[in-house]
Each structure stands twice: as structure tokens, then as C-alpha cells.
Design a protein around this nucleic acid. Sequence first.
RNA 1: GGAGGGGUGGCAGAGCGGACGAAUGCGACGGUCUUGAAAACCGUUGUGCGUGCAAGCGUACCGGGGGUUCGAAUCCCUCCCCCUCCGCCA
Length: 424
Amino acid sequence: MLDVDFIVGNVDVVKRAIDVKGVDLDLDHLLAKHEEVKAILIEVEDLRHERNVLSKQTGKADESERQQLIKESRSIGSKLKEKEPGLREKQDELRELLLLVPNIPGDDEPVGPGEESNVELRTWGDKPEFGFEAKDHVELLELHDWAVASIGNLAGSRSYALRGELALLEMSLWRFALDYMVKQGFTAVALPSFAREAALVGTGHFPGSREEAYELEDDLFLSGTSEVGLNYLRSGEILSPSDLPVRDAGFSTCFRREAGAAGKDVRGLLRVHQFYKVEQYVCCVPDREESNRWFEALLANAEALVQALELPYRLVRLSTGEMGAGKVRTWDIECWLPSANEYRETHSVAEFYDWQARRADLRYRDEDGRVRYLYTLNNTAIATPRILAQLLEVHQQEDGTVRMPAALQPYLDGLEVLGAASAD
RNA sequence: GGAGGGGUGGCAGAGCGGACGAAUGCGACGGUCUUGAAAACCGUUGUGCGUGCAAGCGUACCGGGGGUUCGAAUCCCUCCCCCUCCGCCA
């Protein structure tokens, strides 16, 4: 969410953001609604003031005046009863509109509607050159009996069940990433996957991507990222400078309906409904340079992790149409997937400034005593099972075994190669 | 699932229809005193919105929402959260 006063004072800037981000929103309608709310609010507050004055007098008045005062108050009361519901309704409508206003994209981010406008910033590592017929990750899973083939009967399409070494590998990755984050000064937080609507509005996932979330009974949803929980932990509090920056490494099971991805990536581990994520989350003082430093730190953490996994990747700067409504900028790390002969997203760094903080009510009191909204950022640390696809494919060997990067071996009881027992 | 008790300012805790944005204590901040500190004493100390250049003024908020009333922290309805006991259970 943006500050209304900012919107009013920067109509062109906001309109441009709506345009380049491809958001369906009529800003003039919002501005008119805002004016309308203000006008009614002034009327209603005047009436309330009159009523308060009369009521106060009524309490002190003697019986002779009392009836007259009550009569006057009643007439104001009935006027208020006419106007108040309309005010409430219009305020709600305004809030709904404000929730749709996108953040202003950073000046240096590429402008364009989609993927084709993304800009590759750099690559790291060499794509593997196999001197043999390389397998894709699904073939490797089958070869070693690392996944239950008929799992769809249990949990539907886009589900998976890992077995044996792969099940252990998946869990090793979580711990590997968490340990790394803790070493960087982050606090590990194990989070629920459940979230109330307000928390999903808080991150910006609602109302825009409501259809992506599984809705449960009891007013709960399954969240698609631990960011939802992390971002809401301090909602409504006013933090002090000593609480900052908040640096959390969240872990949770994540659920996504993949409503907009029908028929895409149905095979294998690339796009499943239930997955796991270690998430980096930072909440810092509202300062763009500070935010930029954290953006770079979160990016560096992610790069260090994929480098330790020895996965070739590229860094992509997402275009305005791709970055998401709430973001100032989003940069993705895409790891090389040999079977697809392309890079596939594994990490996504996002910077919000105070857009999320306004929604989730994250504030602090600065050194001068002013209450201000904070800035938030987040990035993936590791998300499984997707990255298993790259890990298996990139590190596969001619005999079908899979070499494990040295950084991961301590988490696998020293195992250097997976699949040795089942390989020919 | 059953029974009961609670949600009030940074914290503790009073208030249960008008003088209440809210006693009191603690904490925090500023000052006096002191070589310095502590203690003591004095003062300040919630948030949102509207309006205004500002000082200020107005309005709303005592878990959320709705209602009764001239007037609600206080009464009613409803939802949420927390605690205790019983049952069940990983």
C-alpha cells in the first residue's frame, strides 16, 4: 500500500506504475473516492461534535432543560444514522482500491510487460558438458526408486513423495540453508503454514493472487511462502530502533494451487502444490540506502548458497510487468536445468520499501520519537523440491549416480555420491 | 469436544452508563540536586484520521465487528485471542 497523500501528490508517477506493471486499476476513480470520503468525514465529524457537546450538557442539565437537549441530540443522532453507514461503506471501498495500488518500480529496473523484457545481469559457473546421454531428473528418480510413481492416486497431480536418499537429501538442504542463515546473523523461525486473511493481505498476496491460495474452513488459508508468517509476526507493534533490523530465516511448508499454470511443468519436481522453503526476511529502518544494502546482502546469501551447491546460475532483473505489484524490484536467481536446456528460477529477491509495512502495520519509533513504517525485503534461501531437479541433473554421472557437493556432505553423513547402491 | 476465567496505555492494574484517552504503580524521557552516579523531588510520556503554515482544534479507538442510549471502556449480540480444569490425542 502507498500513502494516500503520496498518491494524491504524485498522480502521474502512480499512473505510470499502474501502467508498466499491468495493473487493472482506475486511479481517477480512487482519487474521486478519496475526496468523497473526506467530504463525508467532515460532515460526520461535525455532527458528532455537536452531539458530544449536547450530551455533555444533558448530563449536567436539570430536568427542565434536559428533555429539550435530548430532543436536539436525537435529531442529530438520526442524521448521523443516515450518514454513518455510507461513510463506512465508502471508506471500505477506498481501502479496497488502495490495496490494488502497486508500488513504484525502481528507476533502473527494465520496463516491459513480461519475461521477454527481463534483463540478465550475470551468470556464474559453467554449464555441464556431458560426455554421455544425460538423464532428466525424473529419469534419475525412477532409476534409483527415489520417488513413489503412483503418488497422484494419494494426493492428486503435482504431488510427489521422495524415498530413501532423496528424502534425506531434501531435508538436508533445509538444514544446510538454515545453518548458513544463522551464521549470517539470522534467527531461525519455524512457522505455521496457516494464515489469516489479514496476513495474506499484509504481504500483498491478497487480494491480487487470492486464487493461488488454498482456502480452509475457520477463516484460514494455506500460505504459499513463509514470508506471510514472518511479515505478520510483529504486526501492530511499534518497534524500537534496538529491535532493528529484524533478520529472520523462516521455514515452513508452502502450498500453492498453481491456478494460472495449467498444464505447465506437470512432470517431475519443478512445480508442485506442496513444497518447503527456507526464507530470508528483513525488516529495517525506512532508508533506501539501508534497504539497498539488505537487498544486496539477501542476494549475496542466495548466491553463496547456490554456489556452495555448485549449481551454474544466472541473475535476472525482472521487468516491471513481472516483478509483482508490491515490489520496487525483484531479481531472480535461475539455476541451470540441463534437461530443459535453460535456467529455471530457484530464488527471488524482493524489495518493498514500506508497501508491505503499511498493509501489515509494521512500525517503529525513531530516535526523534516519530512513528514510521518500516521497510521489508525477502528472498528465498532454499526451496525444495524444485532445486533437487537442478541438483540431480547437474551433478549426475555417467553411471547414473549423483555427486554431492562438498558443502552438503556433512548433512548427508559424509555421503559423497547418491545412488551408488542402486546403480549398475 | 465439555466446563469455567480473562482480554484496558511500553508493562502491571483500577474503572463497570456522563466529570474517562482513562486512577495508581513501574518503566522510559527531561529537569533539580550531585565531582559523577544512585536516591529523592518536579515535569513529560498512546495511535489513527480530518483541519490548519503552525500552535492548536475536532473526531475515533479500552481484543475485532454490530447494536441499545441524548451519552458506552462500562449494557446487549456476535466473532477472535489468551488462561485454567476435564476428555481425546501426535
